[in-house]
């Protein structure tokens, strides 16, 4: 078994309104920053032991499917690295 950290990034699908990101963008603009757009995402860092990086990715993928993301509004991606 190897120790891995799986990173699951959950973001809204393109086209789904993100009022929190819009509010954040406006706040940045009020501070004088110039930006075209801002998107936010949730990032989950999951430490786990697995036989291989593939297995670690599979398990993290299932976690995203079953809880971390809502397929109606979210896309997600999984990245795995040694810990």
């Amino acid at each position: 078994m190897t120790e891995y950290t799986a990173t699951v990034t959950v973001r809204l699908k393109r086209g789904v309104l993100d009022p929190e990101a819009e509010t954040t963008q406006r706040a940045l603009e009020r501070l004088g920053f110039d930006l075209d757009d801002l998107r936010s995402a949730d990032r989950f860092e999951i430490d786990l032991d697995a036989a291989s990086a593939e297995e670690a990715a599979d398990r993290a993928d299932e976690m995203a499917e079953r809880l971390l993301a809502n397929p109606t509004i979210h896309d997600y991606e999984v990245a795995v690295e040694d810990r």
């Binding site: 789904v16 309104l17 993100d18 009022p19 929190e20 819009e22 509010t23 109606t72």
Partner: peptide, 11 residues
């Protein structure tokens, strides 16, 4: 039920 209820447009 289908769909999702998410953050209000007003935030």
């Amino acid at each position: 039920t289908p769909g999702a209820f998410t953050v209000n447009r007003s935030a």
